[in-house]
Design a protein around this nucleic acid. Structure first.
Lengths: 339, 339
DNA sequence: TGAAACTACGAAAACGTATTCGAAAACATC
DNA sequence: GATGTTTTCGAATACGTTTTCGTAGTTTCA
């Protein structure tokens, strides 16, 4: 490995001068700067991030907390898009990313310890159980943090606007004439709560009320559970004319159940999903859904995190809301009560 | 940050002794070991990976090359599963992973430079353009490498058995009575070549020959291109009775085209995909496809990589073939020529 | 011309850790 | 009690870099 010393010898200057020349200090003559940089590239010099970190205590490395026991963020399309944009945005700013986990080889370490071990300058947290002790320890530590889709009051967060999403989808159904709308929601999380708020808000605005049986518990990304939930809805004496699903993937479970009953989408029943992943436009029929702007969510969280890292004192915690967009497929048809 | 020195002061021993006590050297008395470890955990000590690396030149960090300009590995379900298992297997062995890219902030660096910069102990490479100069530079360097789904002769690789996959799928169709089998293949890569080999092998074994028009070029994961390819096949005067698609996602494009033409799957035409991602079982009808064992592919590549890292001299390059599995959905029906 | 100011560089220390080698202390052996 | 052996520890050094501060040499300016 070629180091700063090799360059210094070849150039006949001190290591200190080489370092300064490479880092653009202004007390080095133009001439030596040229010489040093020249030989550096001749020798194919690559700086050593670890050594640099040791001196500066800046790792240019941000941790990502995307997975824990209960959820598998990486294979979740929405989160994989977020991860992808987190990665790209980080690289643009000169940061690498490291996955933070609770075990490393034999030693089990807390999330915080893992961050300290790898000297992460900051962490973005998503798709974890935000109630866990380990996450709280990290949140309350000194390392800068940005959370995604969950808000703590002392740290910054980037939130997909779930109230808006559910509100817009529900309004869309209502405007298409539907009055009997079934809602299959995911497990009890703040995201789910927000969506229920949006759902109810839209109903209220239209003066529509929904019997409690129309709201059934499902589970994000679980086709089987949602299939059962769909069956429960359709078994009602007066079943809904439209169903809102927890997300696009779990909708596929519902679709299977509806097909099994000989119901056609959208002729016999209207449906919409959530997430607006790539897939949804490819389905037959294309799914009406709510596109969460995963790309912007990722970018914003890294932007905010780096801002926090680099101006730690002056940077206030902030809640950043990211809007989504209705993607109208053809899984919803106009509904006339008199039919 | 609490360091080894803090512990040494509190215990009244030298830093050297603390280091040894923590790392289990055998020239430290049981008693001091207990004392040191005790206070270490009291002070909530976390070792500093960078400092350790600087001394040992072992980073316990492996690079992953999963993305380049042309492909987006992270959002590709097959690769996201591989990544997930790479990550898990690495963590079990005490390694973190770092994404290797060609740009970091202002400086653009080659893949190799990025690895050196972060002191990666090794790299696993997948889903990139293996012909590129930058990849070759890395392959031919001193850093241990394992490639996925592409074989170089001087480095180890883990390969999904694509000959087997295409062979088994084709045989399945043939055994179901199909003789007119359309094959939409992906862009020209070694993976595609292997599948064509398997395809032809099965045909040959059954003494079946296929007109050249039945083999059309598509594109992995591109629903639109594959939709067009499907249209071309079905526009033939004597269209196939079964179509093999490049992968499960691009099949959705084909499905759209078939539906548009009023063809039902599998009554009017049989289809199969490739990859066997989660999704395929949820489709209507469930897709017959070939499941690539992404989980094992990820695990094997990390296992082999770490073996190479830790026994560099004695560890020979090796080609590891990973078998897949036919997933029979209900997208293929028996076909009788006389019908 | 002397002082002041500026330019360009280097010596040295530090970041936190691992490891070699020597040495003191304790113990055993005859 | 002299010698040898084992046990237990610490001093010192190095890894590759950044950064402070000092200084020699040069220029400016009154």
């Amino acid at each position: 490995m070629v180091t700063i010393k090799d360059i210094s010898k070849k150039c006949g200057v001190s290591p200190a001068t080489v370092s300064k020349a490479l880092n653009g200090y202004d007390d080095i003559s133009e001439e030596t700067i040229r010489l040093v940089r020249q030989t550096a590239s001749e020798l194919n010099y690559t700086p050593n991030a670890a050594a640099r970190l040791l001196k500066t205590s800046i790792s240019h490395n941000i941790g990502v907390l995307f997975v824990d026991d209960t959820m598998s963020g990486l294979t979740h399309e929405y989160f994989s898009y977020i991860l992808n944009s987190v990665k790209e945005e980080a690289e643009i700013s000169g940061y690498d990313i490291t996955f933070i986990s609770q075990k490393l080889g034999k030693r089990k370490m807390s999330f915080l310890q893992h961050c300290l071990y790898r000297n992460c300058d900051g962490v973005v947290i998503a798709s974890v159980n935000f109630d866990s002790k380990a996450v709280h320890e990290l949140i309350n530590s000194d390392v800068p943090v940005v959370t995604i889709d969950y808000a703590f009051d002392n740290v910054s967060s980037v939130l997909s606007d779930n109230v808006e999403g559910a509100y817009e989808l529900t309004s869309y159904l209502l405007n298409m004439g539907h009055r009997k709308i079934g809602y299959i929601f995911g497990e009890q999380t703040s995201v789910t709560n927000k969506r229920l708020v949006g759902f109810n808000k839209a109903l209220k605005e239209h003066g529509v009320s929904i019997p409690p049986e129309y709201m059934v518990q499902g589970r994000y990304h679980d086709a089987e559970v949602v299939r059962e939930a769909t069956a429960r809805l359709m078994d009602l004496p007066d079943p809904p004319t439209a169903i809102m699903f927890p997300d696009d993937i779990s909708f596929l479970g519902g679709q299977a159940e509806l097909t099994r009953r000989g119901l056609r989408i959208p002729e016999d029943i209207s449906v919409c999903g959530y997430d607006g992943i790539n897939l949804s436009g490819l389905l037959q029929p294309p799914l009406t859904t709510w596109h969460q702007d995963a790309d912007r969510i990722g970018k914003e969280s890294v932007r905010k995190l780096i801002e926090t890292i680099e101006h730690r004192s002056t940077c206030a915690a902030e809640q950043i809301m990211v809007s989504g967009q209705l993607v109208s497929g053809s899984s919803v048809r106009e509904w006339d009560e008199k039919m």
